[in-house]
Design a protein around this nucleic acid. Structure first.
Ligand SMILES: [Mn+2]
Ligand SMILES: [Mn+2]
Ligand SMILES: [Mn+2]
Ligand SMILES: [Mn+2]
Lengths: 158, 158
DNA sequence: AATAATTGTTAGCCTAGGCTAAACTAATTG
DNA sequence: CAATTAGTTTAGCCTAGGCTAACAATTATT
């Protein structure tokens, strides 16, 4: 074996732009992301159900499965959860419906999603790409940033 | 029981801006997000280890735990995974190091993270908020959007 | 009406990513 | 140098979110 083991180097000073944030602030970043991940999928389901109801008049589990590209078993399990959370009502072989709370969440999520999508398009991102990016980004955009995005979009294409 | 059950309504025409995308495209959106989620945490770890090495000269498990606000057990388990993936080398009670592949990933992730962060600041988002949003957004920004963000930042603050 | 196709549910399996508690190792300090 | 403190690992538990396979119920076709 070699005699000289890998040694910690003296810190290279500001080779990249920013310094490390203070520990508490840094921790806050990751915590916020973890919290977003907890509600992300729920929001996507509720939002999609709302969209299907609005555009198609009904929201079937099979539609969700194909539009999300997951198995029907996965959707079935998730619907049970949404039910327990009081967000949807469902009966077998019937369309899903949103509860009051579910409708509220659907509207909020849809509004947020749209702001991010329209912002990306206003920035000059192609539609297909903008849709893909918005689907993930929407869950990680603060209200502050959202407001700025909205203003930007209004100013850059009326 | 009531006689009139909840009925699917005729689709309200374009009450919100956009129509539903075609099924395959829609599915692609969610698939891309799921894929991003698979690598997200790995990237955050590797990036953080790189940052700690660069700024502090060493990266200890305990630092990661406090900066990420997770338990040391969680970090220990993740380090084993990073090891198996060939991204880090570690010996008990010694600093972590990145393999070649790990360094590559750290640089790529850091560059992407910085572009998103600087873009948000250039947009007018406050620093603390920008850092929180960037931590989540970075994993959901396509190369196309990333390039546009970078250009925007260069043009809006030299 | 019988059969076929579609739709939905359930059971059981898997991985990722958290946690606590307990044990062990290393470093610090009285 | 002994004792305490700090760092690390392991074991075991949990939930979320995927999957397949088998079965059940509804709807569509002939
Ligand atoms: Mn959405
Ligand atoms: Mn989404
Ligand atoms: Mn990052
Ligand atoms: Mn991140």
């Amino acid at each position: 074996m070699s005699d000289h083991e890998q040694q910690p180097l003296p810190p290279t000073p500001h080779q990249s732009g920013d310094a490390l944030p203070p520990v508490e602030q840094h921790a806050q970043q990751y915590e916020t992301v973890r919290n977003a991940h907890e509600t992300e999928l729920i929001e996507d389901y509720v939002e999609l159900i709302g969209d299907l109801l609005r555009h198609r008049g009904e929201a079937r589990a099979a539609d969700i499965a194909s539009r999300m590209s997951v198995s029907q078993a996965t959707v079935s399990k998730m619907i049970r959860r949404l039910n327990e959370l009081g967000l949807v009502t469902s009966r077998p072989y019937r369309s899903l419906f949103l509860t009051q709370e579910g409708q509220q969440m659907a509207e909020t999520s849809r509004a947020r999603h749209d702001i991010v999508l329209h912002f990306l398009r206003a920035l000059g991102v192609r539609d297909t790409t903008a849709r893909i990016d918005a689907e993930g980004m929407e869950h990680h955009v603060s209200d502050e940033t959202l407001a700025i995005m909205q203003r930007f979009t209004e100013e850059h294409q009326p």
